[in-house]
Design a protein around this nucleic acid. Structure first.
Lengths: 211, 211
DNA sequence: CAGCATCCGCTTTGATACTG
DNA sequence: CAGTATCAAAGCGGATGCTG
């Protein structure tokens, strides 16, 4: 992309991450950690392979991404964020917060990857009964399970299963998130295909306020 | 632009502000306030006029920008940010902070508008002598003067002149900012065309730490 | 003059195929 | 696995013209 040629910090940032797909590559590396080329492609449905290669080169040249050849027996290339690249996390976070209202709307045709939801879930939920004992919930709403750890007033989301979940929720993500956010009644959600196993009251504990 | 079609808050945000020029339009409206079409064009050097019209329509459709017909005798269209648009300010701010290091590099061919520098200056400077009396500095480094109000530990930057400045600094912006940031010595700056009138010690007061 | 729309050459993207 | 090559389609940049 042509530089904006402006002596402006926002424009300079956009010169680096403003092209199509570029910031989403940073998102993948930020929420997934070091990734292989094919993992990135899987997390960016629809990207043309030549574009992914182009963008990775640009990001490398800009000092945002680094490429490491993993030694045998792994023998694969790993892409990661440099420290300078990690500093883009606040940009991702403010954008995620701004886009949060869209997550409680129906998006039936959207692709879903679990790693995209981890950050949004943490923004969307809170522990309304901080004095209750620690509990864990498992969500099966993307391509991989997500664990929610509710304890002492905060909710932490992460990729991965829960060994002894207090509740398990599965179903279409664009129903489960609105339900967890309190925008969609539980019975409506269940009618729309959401299934809740375990203790349903646990879900009241994490439902947050305004999105 | 085609939607990413991802159920991801970051991607949804990029669906709205991810196209070329779009976020810079928001920047103009956020730092300049309600603007006419021609003002926007002046703050976005190089934009094609049809693109500006397109982007304004898209932003209007997305609920980020609103258009008001000012009544006679003004008789012009004013574009402003909606409340939802104002909420993009944190995105601009995190991007500005990330791009700040670029502002202390030389950028001889870049275009400059004073309104682009106001936010960066506030991030770049601090009041190192909080107990000193309030002082004001005028910067003449863009197309319009900028006032710096130094008082009680903080520095506030704004467009506009200063009635009784303790110091006046003029010269190339890509020399003045590095100098104010303490990255460029005063004698080097003056050799590069920076001129300081009034009390030079006042500049030591505002020089900040790391960028 | 402010606020566009149209046209045209160029660049970027997207989809597919192919390679070390 | 990690790309390159190719090509049609879409988007962009610049110039110009039109309308209240």
């Amino acid at each position: 992309m042509k530089s904006y040629g402006e002596y402006c910090a926002v424009a300079k940032t956009l010169d680096v991450i403003g092209e199509r797909w570029t910031l989403l590559i940073v998102r993948e590396l930020s929420y997934q950690g070091p990734s292989r080329y094919t993992d990135l492609r899987d997390g960016l449905p629809g990207i043309a392979t030549n574009l992914l290669a182009d963008r990775l080169r640009s990001l490398e040249a800009a000092g945002v991404v680094s490429r490491e050849e993993a030694p045998p027996p792994v023998a694969t290339t790993l892409f990661s964020l440099t420290p300078r690249g990690e500093e883009l996390r606040p940009v991702l976070e403010t954008m995620m917060r701004w886009g949060l209202p869209f997550m409680t709307e129906e998006m039936p045709d959207d692709v879903v990857r679990s790693q995209w939801l981890v950050g949004a879930l943490e923004l969307l939920m809170e522990d309304r009964r901080p004095t209750d004992p620690r509990a864990e919930i498992e969500l099966r709403i993307g391509d991989r399970p997500i664990s929610l750890a509710v304890d002492g007033g905060s909710v932490e989301a992460a990729l991965g299963s829960v060994e002894d979940p207090g509740a398990v929720v599965s179903g279409p993500p664009d129903k489960v998130l609105p339900m967890l956010a309190g925008k969609l009644g539980r019975s409506d959600a269940e009618a729309a295909g959401v299934r809740i196993d375990g203790d349903p009251e646990l879900l009241d504990r994490v439902g947050a306020g305004p999105a």
